[in-house]
Design a protein around this nucleic acid. Structure first.
Lengths: 194, 194
DNA sequence: CTAATCATGTACAATAGTGTCTGATTTAGC
DNA sequence: GCTAAATCAGACACTATTGTACATGATTAG
């Protein structure tokens, strides 16, 4: 078996269009979760039928998009050095990933109501696990406050990141400002109460 | 003018059904923003045509629902005593309103993508104005940290409340726990850094 | 240049939601 | 009990989206 004959290599514009479709899908769906495939195809600069040449259904497009975005997040997160103090690790993790994390979060929401029911359990590593691991370390060595459950602190962490992304989408905040205020806010969230 | 003859009073089951429809709409739309009018009518225990007897279109139902929910929020917020210390006022405001606030926030999101474009500017008082007024007072008297913009702190305030509501919807948090952890978290958000 | 691959446009069927109309039936106010 | 008001079920036209089929035109590797 194993592709007996690949008489021709994959055409270059094919992969280029495929990437354009995925990029356009991410952009459209984040802006408006109810975007149709026609909208996405138009935003990608291809015909609607071409989209079906690459993804056999809306469901498949969403699935591939979610997985590819999560893979980018994983790659980004894996490259962050978390060996320093919990505070430094927190800053590094947040500033390097808040943008992507909120995107994957939004896409996850789109899929949840696009799929019949259920499905969706975290594919690969849940980014939350990484955050909670860091939180556990900071709590263990006395850096972070421990009068609140770890799960709650994790939820607040993502709430802040997601909220910042929303503010940006609605034009009330710039990316630069978000990057500037997020670290200090997360510190306030986790430091011991006086 | 002014209803020349009201030969009959409004029938009681009519207003009862109207209320049931609004309640069901809030419940359905928060759970699934793409709920159809048929879903809502069924959840309210009435026929689909009866719904059209009360609201001439999906748009009108959403508008009335948003306004009525915001009116409840306004009433709830107006009854909160904010004259004490900024910290106490913050606790009171958050614990008495986080549930409703997140509901109105979700409905606002549903409407934004259901209306053609634009519209939607805050009807009546934006609940945010009330929060920002309190924030301004706490910043002025030195209670809250001032090394971050007021708008950012306001955004974080709503992010925490909205995030807590999301966690509850997904079953990872109970209402009791949310009420327990929210005040302490908001304090950490606003207190001076050490 | 050549030939296979891919993109394109149009057309079509199937499905789902919206909004309207009809007539029959039940309900509640007086 | 009478009567107006409100409900209900079913059917209809309209629109939008999804997914498929087919014939034609463009692109690119070799």
């Amino acid at each position: 078996m194993a592709q007996a004959q690949r008489e021709r290599a994959v055409r270059s514009d094919s992969t280029r269009n495929r990437d354009a479709i995925l990029a356009a899908a991410a952009e459209c769906l984040v802006a408006n979760p109810a975007s149709s495939l026609a909208d996405i195809a138009q935003a990608a600069g291809v015909g609607r039928v071409t989209l079906y040449g690459h993804f056999s259904s809306r469901h498949e497009l969403l699935t591939v998009l979610l997985h590819s975005t999560m893979a980018r997040v994983e790659a980004e997160l894996a490259s962050v050095d978390l060996t320093g103090s919990p505070w430094d690790a927190l800053d590094a993790l947040a500033t390097s990933s808040w943008r992507l994390l909120s995107e994957v979060n939004t896409l996850r929401g789109v899929m949840e109501q696009s799929l019949p029911e259920g499905e969706m359990q975290a594919s690969h590593h849940d980014p939350r696990a990484r955050v909670e691991h860091l939180l556990a370390r900071g709590r263990a060595d006395g850096s972070f406050r421990t009068d609140q459950p770890l799960r709650w602190q994790s939820a607040c962490y993502f709430s802040i990141l997601h909220g910042a992304a929303s503010e940006i989408r609605e034009g009330r905040l710039t990316e630069r400002d978000a990057s500037k205020w997020i670290p200090g806010t997360l510190r306030g969230l986790l430091q011991q109460s006086p």
